[in-house]
Simulated scan of single mutants.
Amino acid sequence: MSSLPAGWYKDPAEPDTQRYWDGEGWLGKAIPADAVPPDGPPPVEEEPPPAPEPTATPAGPAATPAPQSPQSPPPGWGPQPPPPPGWQPPPGWHQPPAGQQPPPGWQPPAGQQPPPGWQPPAGQQPPPGWQPPPGWQPPPGMFPPMQARPHGFALAGLGPRLVARLIDIGAVLLLNVVINGWFAYQWAREFVPMYRATLDEMANGGSAWDVQASGRMDGLLWAMLIIATLLWLAYEAPSIGSSGQTLGKRIMRIKVVAVEDTKPLGFGRAFGRWARLGLWTPAWGCAGIGFVLQLIDCVSPIFDQQLRQAFHDKTARTVVIALPPDDRQPVDATTGGNGSTGQN
Rank of each mutant, 00 (worst) to 15 (best):
P5K: 01
W8R: 02
K10M: 00
Q18N: 05
R19K: 11
D22T: 12
L27M: 10
A30I: 14
A30R: 06
A33V: 14
D34F: 09
A35Y: 02
V36N: 03
G40L: 05
V44Q: 12
E45I: 13
E46G: 12
A56T: 14
P58S: 08
P58M: 01
S72Q: 14
S72F: 08
P74Q: 09
P74T: 06
W77H: 15
P79I: 12
Q80H: 06
P81R: 10
P83G: 03
Q88Y: 03
G92K: 05
G92Q: 11
P96F: 05
A98I: 15
A98M: 13
Q101Y: 11
G105C: 03
P108A: 07
P109R: 01
P109F: 15
Q112Y: 07
P114G: 03
G117D: 04
W118Q: 01
Q119G: 01
Q119Y: 10
G123E: 02
P126G: 01
W130G: 03
Q131Y: 10
P139G: 09
P140M: 06
P140R: 11
P144A: 15
P145F: 02
Q147L: 12
A148S: 11
H151R: 03
H151M: 10
G152E: 04
G152F: 15
L155E: 02
G157P: 02
D168G: 06
G170Y: 12
N176S: 14
G181C: 07
G181I: 10
F183Y: 12
A184Y: 13
A184S: 11
Y185F: 12
W187M: 04
A188V: 07
L199R: 03
S207Y: 05
W209L: 14
W222C: 01
W222I: 00
M224S: 13
M224P: 00
I227H: 11
L231F: 00
L233S: 04
E236M: 10
E236N: 09
A237K: 06
P238K: 15
S239P: 04
G241K: 01
T246W: 00
K249C: 02
K255G: 01
F271H: 01
W280A: 00
P282K: 06
Q294E: 04
I296F: 12
C298L: 06
P301L: 11
R308S: 09
R317N: 07
R317M: 12
V320R: 03
D326Q: 04
D327S: 09
Q329M: 14
Q329W: 09
T335K: 12
T335E: 08
G337C: 13
G339P: 00
S340I: 07
T341I: 11
N344G: 09
N344A: 15
